[in-house]
Nucleic acid binder design. Structure first.
Length: 388
DNA sequence: CCGTCACGAT
DNA sequence: CGCAACGGC
């Protein structure tokens, strides 16, 4: 396909809290994994907390038609961390690196926390910053601070070479009190060192959402699902897009979109940049091609495995939901019976204006209940949030 | 709360 | 195959 004229690039940034159940939901709602990206017209999707092990990757997840994927997976714990960037072939990066903050030996690079892709017009850094751990000890506070500092150093070096840089993902620090619900005392949330590391980053790279929404103090990106905090919008804004000035000038919009609560404890963000030229066709970069090579053989596990089935050995399984037997059994993190807010608290779950809209697909039977929820939740208006 | 995985029962 | 225990947030 010929490169199109410079157009608007839509990126989605989303901590999905496990890729496999999320893809299962994509397929049920949108007919295919790819269908999710198409439905929302995103050319680049930056996902965090995919929690994939390198050897658990399947062709269905890695080789989406029309997209390339770039993976950082944890080499330490399994079912932990992991970030993935999907890029449509029109924006196929000319270079990509995973877990590249240190010198190759660093413990910062062992947990699947960074995917860096070079899209010519800018370098995209998809990040999942470490959680410091339970207070009061916060055992990984130091690791987290070192990570944030190394992230800045890496981006600074790119910037020193004259590159535009876009850092996206879950940085695990809210920037200020106005980025958290008033019920939280900001001082109690993070240590001085974390704030310093975060503000060093923010000093160099603009928080795009905040830049466009200076007055908004009630839009958050993560909530404690155990306490139904999302229904009361008692959240924090820890997911970001940060960028250099040249890119900031190209920002058309940057919005938090309400993704279905049960799909992840985080909401997604959609960023639009204008005048970003698609990249001329080229061979996939090394990181991408080496991984895809693994999936050239037949007999790879198919998407059916994600529905609790052994790989359909004989069949060339497509991605259509209808073809996936057993789809009606596993409901997983979908809304079965909508998580009702506790009785002690008032108000039902707020309608969510920016909510991702309902699918076009006639979905499996099990999706009927939340199908309605989705439609009900698709409302106009701007103020995402109501106050209790 | 949400996953995953090891385990015992079939 | 279903469920308990556990770990992460």
């Amino acid at each position: 396909m010929e490169p199109e004229a410079a157009g608007t690039l839509r990126l989605m940034i989303w901590n999905i809290n496990s890729l496999v159940p999320t893809v299962r939901n994509f397929i049920l709602k949108y007919g295919s994994f790819r269908g999710f990206f198409e439905e929302h017209s995103v050319q680049i999707a930056c996902l965090q907390e995919t929690k994939m092990l390198d050897d658990k990757l399947t062709k269905d997840l890695v080789c989406l038609e029309g997209y390339e994927s770039f993976w950082a997976t944890s080499r330490e714990k399994k079912g932990y961390s992991g970030v993935t960037t999907y890029a449509s072939t029109a924006y196929s990066p000319v270079k990509a690196e995973a877990d590249c903050l240190g010198d190759g030996e660093s413990d910062l690079d062992r947990e699947g926390r960074v995917v860096l892709t070079d899209h010519m017009a800018f370098v995209l850094v998809n990040v999942y910053a470490p959680n410091a751990g339970e207070r009061p000890e916060r055992p990984r506070k130091d690791f987290k601070c070192r990570f944030l500092t190394a992230l800045k150093a890496k981006c600074d070096s790119l910037r020193a070479k004259g590159r535009e840089v876009l850092i996206v993902g879950d940085l695990n620090v809210a920037a200020s009190q106005r980025d958290v619900h008033p019920k939280f005392s900001y001082e109690a949330l993070y240590s001085e060192e974390e704030n310093q590391a975060m503000h060093a980053l923010l000093g160099e790279y603009t928080d795009v959402w905040r830049h466009r929404h200076p007055q908004d103090t009630s839009t958050y990106t993560v909530w404690d699902e155990k306490t139904s905090a999302r229904a009361f919008n008692e959240g924090l804004r820890i997911d970001y897009a940060l960028c250099t000035p040249g890119l900031l000038a190209k920002v058309v919009s940057c919005e938090v979109v309400q993704t279905p609560p049960k799909w992840s404890d985080h909401a997604a963000m959609v960023l639009e940049l204008r005048d970003i030229s698609p990249i001329a066709a080229h061979a996939p970069c090394a990181l991408s091609s080496s991984r895809m090579k693994r999936f050239n053989d037949r007999g790879q596990p198919s998407v059916a495995t994600m529905f609790g089935r052994k790989p359909a050995s004989k069949r060339a399984a497509g991605l259509e939901a209808e073809q996936v037997p057993g789809a009606s059994r596993k409901v997983s993190k979908q809304e079965g019976a909508s998580a009702a807010a506790p009785e002690s608290r008032t108000r039902p779950s707020a309608t969510a204006p920016g909510q991702l809209d309902q699918p076009r697909l006639s979905a499996a039977k099990t999706t009927a209940p939340e199908e309605q929820q989705f439609q009900r939740a698709t409302q106009p208006a701007q103020g995402l949030i109501w106050q209790p």
